[in-house]
Design a protein around this nucleic acid. Structure first.
Lengths: 155, 155
DNA sequence: GTTCCTGCAAAAGCTTTGCAGAAGA
DNA sequence: TCTTCTGCAAAGCTTTTGCAGGAAC
């Protein structure tokens, strides 16, 4: 996708294509690793020295509102952004932390108890171990588990 | 579920049933509104004046590790907890903010691209408008939308 | 006595807000 | 000029960490 395409995409969604927004959306399009605000900022500030995080926040919020991106809540207390707004699921590897996309047939998910609800969007999120980490497997190195509190051992 | 049941549940999962943990798990069992740490704290501190938020965090973490509760990331930059660890989906109403449970047939969700992955858990999350808010409908009052930035209007 | 639990205070980290200057039409 | 965009600094919140006193066994 060229810069010209990004510009047209922004305009098509009613978002003014400032250079900052162009660059942020371009970054999102090129880096499908579901970057955080901080990652986007750290990379783009090298090219746009006056960039501020506030602007990154503002732009991403605008993108989400206008369906140019979606926000993921993957439980690191940090939002992740994805320029792919089509329906797909996300998988987080508990070992390496990487987030993978996967295809999913949303239409055929059978749901019970949402009668009368207006559903705007559905998302599916999985956790586990990715094939790469399975190979090098020793143990889950994620510091989030077994950190401070120990389970009670009955005797 | 009586306190005695809660105690046995904790012991069965290898978690020492201290009075604090009992009360926190009891609260979670009784309030299926997916409370936040702060909500749990504010309610229980009235009964246990010396309670600290740290302890609430610690206990909930212990519960999650030992499958006594699950943590939800519903995008308020705040963790929510659910004592129902069975497979079910969550729906957030964008108008009132309430989170609803719904049934879902996880086994039959067709997924493509997770071959070779070890999947520990799947979750489904939807957003929209609940029946109650649909009735009183005017507009989505959620302050998160249209807050600070305006979309570009082409002329 | 040893281990585990609890909690205060402080730190850390992400996100939002206020306000003002800059840019664009 | 008027509106919109940008960004610094500060504030707001949730969560984590260090450390120590206390409870349990």
């Amino acid at each position: 996708m060229t810069i010209k395409d990004i510009q047209e995409l922004l305009e098509a969604k009613g978002v003014k294509p400032s250079i900052t927004r162009l660059k942020i959306l371009d970054y999102l399009q090129r880096h499908r690793s579901h970057p955080s605000v901080d990652e986007i900022y750290r990379n783009l500030v090298q090219e746009i020295p006056t960039l501020s995080k506030t602007t990154v926040y503002n732009s991403l919020e605008l993108f989400v509102e206008n369906h140019l991106a979606q926000v993921l809540h993957v439980g690191d207390n940090e939002n992740r952004y994805d320029a792919d707004v089509s329906s797909h699921g996300h998988f987080k590897c508990l070992s390496c932390g990487k987030i993978y996309d996967f295809g999913i047939d949303f239409e055929n998910i059978k749901v019970e108890g949402l009668e009368g609800f207006r559903v705007y969007d559905k998302s599916v999120y999985c956790q586990g171990i990715c094939p790469h980490c399975k190979v090098n497997e020793k143990e889950v190195t994620n510091g989030k588990y077994g950190k401070r509190r120990n389970a009670y051992r009955q005797n």
